[in-house]
Each structure stands twice: as C-alpha cells, then as structure tokens.
Design a protein around this nucleic acid. Structure first.
Lengths: 233, 233
DNA sequence: TCAGCGTAAGTGTGATCACAGACCGCGGCA
DNA sequence: TGCCGCGGTCTGTGATCACACTTACGCTGA
C-alpha cells in the first residue's frame, strides 16, 4: 500500500478487526449514508484503490453485501447498487413495520432505565435539526438513524440488530436519493411527534403503543418517498 | 483439482452460479442438516480439499456464514460452529416466534391457492414420518423444514426469506444435536397438530390463527430442546 | 521420569497472478 | 456518410504464494 487511505487504515487500532470487515463497514456507511446512488456501478479494483487495500478484502465485503441484498451483481458480472421498484419498496416497508415494530415493542418491555438517556439524546439532536432555521438534512437523517438503532438496541435482542441493519442497508440509498433530489422540503413529516410518542410509550413500558408509534413513523416517511414517484417501474 | 468432488462440482450445470455460492450452499446444508455439531472446529483448507476447490471460495462462503452468525471465529483465529447458550437459544426463539409468526400471518393473507398443494405435500410427508413404526428422524426434520419454508414463501415477501433462512442456520445445529443425542424419543411434541392447525388457518385466510399455530409449534419444540438441559451455561 | 523449551505444522488473512467474458471505441469497408 | 467488425481494456472469479500467529508434538535436559 503506497499511500495510506483515510477511510480504512485506522492503523493505530489493534489488529483484531480484519481488513475485510473494515471495508464492509466503510461500504455500509457509504450505502446507508447515501453516498452511493441506486444504479451506480461499483468496481472492486477502484474501491480497493480508493481504500488503499488490495482487491481481496473488497471482494469479501462486496460478497457479503450482495448476500444481504444491499448490492446486486448483474448477469453481465457488474456490481451495482440495486434500483428499487415501488413494489419492492412497499414490501420492504411492510417487513420493516413488522420487525422494527416488534423491536420497539420489546424495547418497551426490556429496556433498562439507563438506556433512555442515549435514546433521548439522539431524539433531541434530531429535533434540533428539524426545528433549525436551515436544517442540516444529512445530520438530521443521521440523528434519526441513531435514534432508531438506540431504541432497537434497548430491546436487548442481539439477533435482531443485524437483521434491522440489513433492512436499513437496503433503504439507505433510496432514502438519501430522495433527500438529495427533493432539496426544497424536509422529507420528514411529523417524525418528531412519532419519536416523542415512541419515547413516552417506552418509558411507560407500553409495548403496543411503542409499536404503533414506530409503525406510523415508518409508514408516513415511506409514504412521502413513494409519493415522489421517483421509484422505478 | 485432481479428483472431482461429489459435493460441489455439479460440473454439468451452467457457469452462472459461482463456486463461492456453491460452497456456501453446501456448508449451509451441512449446518442446517446438523452434520456440523456445535463447537466443532472447521478448517478452510480442509473444507476446500473436501469440496475439491481452493480456499478462495471457501473463504468467501465462511465469511458470509460468520456474518450471518452461523459460524464463529474465535479470538485465536479458529472458525467453529457456535455453541449456543440457553439464554441465546431463548432469545432466538423469541425472535423466531415474532418473525416466522408474522410470515405465517402474511401467508394467510397473501397466499395463492396454488401454494397450498406444496405446503400440504410437505406436511403429509412429515406426518407420514411421525406416524411410521420406525420414523426416519432425519427425513422428518427435513420434511418439517420444507413445510415451514413453503408456508413462509407463500407470504410472498422476498425480503423475509433470507432472514428466516439465517435464523434456521443458527438453530439447525442445536436442533440436530438434540436429534442425534436423544435417539430414543421423537423430539417433536404435537407438531403435527400445530401444522394441521396452521394449514387450516391459512386456507381460511385467518392470519391471527396461523400466527398462533406457528408460535405454539415453535415454542413447544424449543421447550423440548431447552428441557434437555443440553444447552451450554 | 517428568518438566520445559524449541521447532514444525497448521491456521486465517492479504497480495499477486492468471483467465474467461463483457463492453467500449476506433478503424476500415461498402 | 453510415455500418459492421475487431482489438484493447476492464470486469469478476479462482488459484497460488507469502506472512504473522497459534498450537501441539517431540526432544533434551535435569
């Protein structure tokens, strides 16, 4: 590796995490952060060069992402970010409501009181961005993501977290694509209200209410995106 | 490759599916089929030799399985089938009830009438094995698995299938471990009744009832395994 | 006979090389 | 001027080599 890469190569850290895992994390972050647009083609060698590694770790990371459905390999052997059809988007939303709703419900039952601070902090950051005069939309989406994952983590079901992460890996690109294209409005309708409702429900250990809040949060946001008519087919 | 392997090397088939995917399929089958016991160590080179390939495809398959939680890499760099604690088993059962129950419920709503034939056929095969004088337990478990997956596939939610497959990849080893060790009894208590109940509910498009049947099916089977006290910790 | 150390084999991980196939563009021909 | 064909480049995939590290066996010493 001639010159060190800024993305991987947190070279100071211990040699416990493999390069392939680091590449996977880097690609995941770009995917869920919307830096990779749907339909965009990916080249193993180009990514390897960008990240300052060889093709090997990139291959491992990409194969995992393909297995997760976060990337797609065309019959012509080209790796690309999948373009989501409206149908697939609706189906994904259905599954998200079921699984993330369940996670929220379990969080209401199983959370420790010490979990609430972090959840509330992320919600506060999200609310701050939403109510700002000139909202930083990237920061808002990041705070939103942090809020959701902190909430789900409070359910204390380790099996569930990678599953939900895989779901977000798929919606990340279309979410941020919408964000990028509709730069005039904040594509978050009443999310703050649902977040507050969810937090109150979790605090009260009311699982059904927490599930309902998350369900509405997901569905309204998904509805806004579907309404743009920007999805394929 | 000096001599052809019987496991991979379906050499007649087209060059559409990569070797890594074939190895992944082979390992998954061994895992869910219980040929790999919990705690058993595996070696990349040994598997490659067994399957008649190089380490490369095996590495890709194993990295995916590790990402899925179906395999585990110890801090000493050794890859092994995870030994499941009772706590983890209970948590996994909880998640399974939620997700597979949801899938059954959706199957009740969304299934096409043509789906029922396959589901009923697998159930019949399972019932046949259960009621046989000398039941073939491996065949019974396979029929059980086919029944569940055919049912879930009828939900027509493509996103859900890999998730459920990942769940079964984790329980496969402990399920078959129990099967192997308690060779005297058939560790399936009333599963046939729950299956019949589920089929009737799906036919009647009664989602709640279908979910309840699958929930009870999963929980009673899990309870039998947990009762053996064979789980770690 | 037993303890302890050193070497050798085996491990996963990463890099490099080799190869078949696809895609793009330039050049020649009608 | 338009169209067909061919060559070079780039793609992913698989094999082989190299390396740091762990483990375990066997030999040597007391």
């Amino acid at each position: 590796m001639p010159e060190a890469s800024a993305v991987v190569a947190s070279s100071e850290s211990g040699r416990k995490v493999t390069l392939g895992t680091q590449v996977y994390a880097a690609l995941s972050q770009r995917l869920v952060g919307g830096e990779l647009a749907p339909g965009e083609k990916i080249s193993l060698r180009h990514i390897a060069e960008t990240l300052g590694t060889s093709v090997m770790p990139v291959r491992e990371a990409v194969s995992r992402l393909v297995a997760d459905g976060a990337l797609e390999v065309s019959p012509n052997k080209a790796v690309a970010v999948p373009v989501m059809t409206r149908e697939a988007f609706c189906e994904l939303t259905t599954v998200r409501v079921a699984i993330e709703g369940f996670a929220a419900e379990q969080a209401a039952y199983n959370h420790k009181n010490s979990d609430m601070a972090g959840i509330a902090a992320h919600d506060a950051a999200f609310r701050r961005e939403c109510e700002a005069a000139i909202p930083d939309r990237v920061a808002a989406l990041k705070a939103n993501r942090n809020f959701h994952f902190a909430l789900y983590a409070a359910a204390d079901l380790p099996t569930l977290m990678p599953i939900i992460t895989g779901l977000w890996l798929k919606i990340g690109p279309v979410l941020n694509l919408d964000l990028r294209l509709s730069s005039q409005r904040l594509a978050i309708g009443g999310a703050e209200a649902q977040h507050a409702r969810a937090i109150a429900a979790v605090r009260a250990r009311d699982g059904k209410e927490a599930r309902a809040a998350i369900k509405q949060d997901i569905e309204t946001t998904a509805g806004l995106i579907a309404a743009t008519g920007r999805l394929a087919r």
